[in-house]
Design a protein around this nucleic acid. Structure first.
Lengths: 207, 207
DNA sequence: AGATGTGAATGAGTTCACAGCT
DNA sequence: AGCTGTGAACTCATTCACATCT
């Protein structure tokens, strides 16, 4: 069996997408599917589907295809979606508040349990299902709320220190919305969602 | 000179990031920089910086390095950031409203000028600097507002039809927040921002 | 027969190493 | 001497082609 770190982000990305396709097939009541049919339906590559899945075991039946329910369950637990993941939002400005609303009470296997900010005006304010706490109390907030994932919605300048603070507080992974490349810590995986870069890539085609 | 379509999204991504670094160097008052020094400062690869830039011309001075201001200007116009880009948000639910706030009146070279929804309860409501219009009037809204970029903040099921509608309305590029892979139209580039996939990739490391 | 799983071939992207300017 | 710009080498990812299994 493959180690976590050896899985390429590209593969992971696709696995997540395959799961979404399988959920759709389940809704349609389809019980079995071949890589080929799945590829056609969702504009994917059949070979790649098989290669991606084969990394984690032999989920298919030769000559037949994949059992939709079984494969969905496999991917679900492979991606760690078979239990809830609590999130804490750091930075409750426009974006942070918006994310609190949007990721709301239950976003699939994820839910927001807490939010912190260092602006006294925001502390104590009620947003979605929680009350904003002081950034200085991050350690306590994480412990009390049992948050596993930190969501960085702070300005670029403050992102690194807050990532580090999340790491110190025992957070297991960070989703960063600040437009900077952070210095990673070994045990704390990091995913960047950079709206500005995405917009600028689009703008390139508008010259 | 290279064609637009031949530039890899990875390169574009980095160019956008280089520009950000150069802006930072400008703030620091640094006039000239070598690829090496830039790489060290921002945890990049010197060779890659040179390769990326060399695709678009010879911006550097051998034996010396790059002129920070000149290079920033080059990248700025290369990325089409030397003029404003108007955006229209399609889908004014939680996420759409949040984006309207966040991308606000002026987000670098970008600003939101309009928002549409098909929910009568949302139409006519004031959000940020505009009043929500009917999705059915998209064509008019785009023409009147001069929007170039469409931001899709609708549910997955509605994303394809709205992408198509944006394309018909003459939109030049689309940023898609819906968790689906859309069928692209030739002249209408598409960038996906998939929060769910990002969260699920993180969750993989939390198993 | 028909679909999976996989080594081999191809292609994309990155890094190396150095020729060519300043 | 020093740094850019770039062909060549290398590494990573995708696609092909087929042996293997039901």
């Amino acid at each position: 069996m493959i180690e976590q770190e050896e899985v390429s982000p590209l593969t992971l990305n696709r696995l997540s997408f395959y799961l979404r396709c399988l959920r759709h097939l389940q809704e349609l009541g389809i019980k079995r599917i071949s890589s080929q049919e799945m590829a056609q339906r969702y504009h994917l590559s059949a070979t790649q589907i098989r290669k991606d899945l084969a990394q984690f075991g032999e989920f298919g039946i030769r000559g037949v295809g994949y059992d939709v329910n079984a494969l969905a369950d496999h991917l679900n637990s492979l991606l760690g979606l078979d239990r809830q993941h609590a999130m804490v939002i750091v930075g409750m400005g426009n974006l942070g508040s918006a994310l609190a609303q949007y990721l709301g009470f239950n976003y699939g296997a994820f839910h927001v349990v807490a939010g912190v900010d260092n602006d006294p005006k925001k502390i104590g304010r009620r947003v979605a299902s929680f009350v904003v706490r002081a950034a200085a109390d991050l350690q306590d907030v994480v412990r009390e709320s049992g948050a596993e994932i930190g969501v960085l919605a702070v300005p670029a300048e403050a992102a690194q220190e807050n990532y580090d603070a999340l790491a110190e507080a025992g957070i297991k992974g960070v989703l960063n919305f600040a437009p900077v490349r952070l210095k990673r810590r070994p045990g704390v995986p990091l995913k960047n969602v950079d709206l500005r870069i995405n917009l600028e890539e689009l703008a390139f085609f508008l010259r």
